Computed example of a mutant assay.
Amino acid sequence: MPSPQFRIGTRGSPLALWQANAVRNGLVAALGGDPAAVEIVSIRTSGDAIQDRPLSEAGGKGLFVKEIDEALLDGRVDLAVHSAKDLPTALAPGTALAATLPRADVRDALIGGAAPRLADLPRGAVVGTASLRRGALVRRRRPDISVVTFRGNVQTRLDKLARGEVHATLLALAGLTRLGLQEHATEILDEDDFLPALGQGAVAVTAREGDDRTHHALASLDCAATAAALLCERAFLAVLDGSCRTPIAGLARVADGALSFRGLVLSIDGAREVEGVISGSATDAAALGAEAGRDVKARTPADLLAAFG
């Protein structure tokens, strides 16, 4: 049997495999339709192995890509597929973004066990989430609510909720929809009031720098509007040195060549926030995101800024 032309590295969760298969299907079509031309290689990451504590205490979201980057750089795989929001601010040296699939719905979904809406949860309810951003935004709207760390893949979290470990949890609507689990969402949270994670809803593909064969093969999969939005959002994050220790939210929208961006830095308790808004040409996406980041950083109180370490 001939060797595949391309090997895709990915985490092994159902959602990660859905994303990898979406890239594989597009790549197979671009190569002429031979399914054997592209192979998926599942790689267990440190982020998958650590389930007993927040990632902020274990080394940050880069733990979801470390082992996959190693496989990419040593040639065991030719490209890697990630949820864009899981990518660290700085990519591993020798790797580069090669394609971004069209973005899905960016909104968060509440999955309520005790009540269907965030506003209707009982006073003192416990909400489980692995995201400091979601926790801060929940506390901003409901200071009485207790937020606890809630790790695991989508189905694991749904199972924990069904067992009554928490009163509600929050997940990306895009992930639920991709897995056919959107019926579990009891409230879709408005993106303007509950600003998403930078990169949420986007699937990013990385490859080795200088690997022209792989970059050329992936070119037909790239969505220019999503790529520009992601450039802007990641530039904002880079200026703020955002990590899993910092509640940061933001969303860039691209239409007819124009880009608008809104970013937000919050305190852990959601009581304080600093917002940045900017717009311009989508061709200046990275510069706009960086400018917004500098503006927000300059206006962020010193004690809140200290959380950026």
Rank of each mutant, 00 (worst) to 15 (best):
F194C: 02
L176R: 10
D108L: 14
T156Y: 00
V41A: 01
R294P: 04
P196C: 05
R157A: 04
G26N: 07
L266K: 12
E209R: 12
R262W: 00
A227E: 11
T100N: 14
G199I: 00
L118H: 06
L132H: 10
Q51W: 08
R11N: 04
L161C: 09
A92E: 13
D86I: 03
G60S: 03
V265G: 00
A90S: 08
L259R: 03
D295I: 06
V203T: 15
T45R: 01
E57I: 01
I188S: 01
S42H: 00
G210S: 10
R299V: 01
L251Q: 05
R53T: 12
V23H: 15
S260N: 05
A255K: 14
L27N: 07
A258H: 15
L87G: 11
G112S: 12
S13V: 06
A130F: 12
A130S: 15
D241W: 06
A255P: 04
L79I: 05
R117W: 02
E209K: 09
D34P: 10
P301A: 08
D211N: 11
L179Q: 05
V254I: 14
G199D: 02
D108P: 01
T89S: 13
L259C: 07
V126Y: 11
D212W: 03
P14G: 05
L110W: 06
Q200H: 12
L240Y: 04
L72Q: 04
P14T: 06
E39L: 07
